[in-house]
Amino acid sequence: MSDHQEHHDDGHHVNYFKIYIILLVLLVISVVGPIVADVIREVTGVAWVATLLTLVTAFGIAVYKAKLVIENFMHLKWEKRIMKWMLTTSLLLMALMFAGISPDVMNHEGNNWRNVAAEAAVARGIDSGEEEVVEEDTAPAVEVAFDVESMFNIVCATCHGSEGLGDGPAGAALDPRPASFADPEFWETRDRDRIVQVITNGAASVGGSPLMVAWSASFDEGQIQEFADYVQTFRPN
């Protein structure tokens, strides 16, 4: 550790101006790189070269720029080793977080679970593309061929159960639990308009539980009518 003595006067002989100029040159490269990558993609059609170039110029250079600033401007190069360990520990914690959480976030389905909201967001985003933001409230629909039964089983059955009994794997844990659509009492106080209303705007709109959310952002009117029809098939006659 003897090299650490007398480390912190102005004696590190860093040419700050030179570092600054290098940083600016790197900035220019990181902006130009992806533009060149686009041209390569257009002209040659080889996507991976372009992607690699973008990754290197954008992120590789960011890492190198950060290194220059941290070492030379923050003087971490001359700092006691314990500080480097402390910062490394923070970074390791972040890596641990990423490793632990990202598999669940990046995948939208796994053993016995399915992230319906994320799947719907992907489907919605991909087919509406840019308009999505602009016409936010025109109900961008999930355009994959709509089949009410399978859609009910994917989206609603987690809470309502595929027989509509309110016994889906997630439903059991809810408070209040979704009522059984096969219960005659349930139908005594409901009519078709009410069902459509709840599916469209959520149960909170009729004073019910916010856990039954509004589906109008995911499905269009016709599809919601189909859900209402389907829910009514559970009704005992």
Binding site: M86, L87, T89, S90, L91, L93, M94, M97, F98, I101, S102, V105, M106, N107, H108, A118, A121, V122, R124, G125, I126, G129, E130, E132, V133
Partner: peptide
């Protein structure tokens, strides 16, 4: 700064994993 690393690391790490799971974000 060690604690800031965790704060920003948390936000940027979450962003990164969501971005990787959502190809449609490229359109935004």
């Amino acid at each position: 700064l060690a604690s800031e690393v965790v704060i920003f690391g948390g936000v940027l790490g979450s962003y990164l994993m969501h971005r990787l799971g959502h190809p449609e974000w490229a359109d935004a």
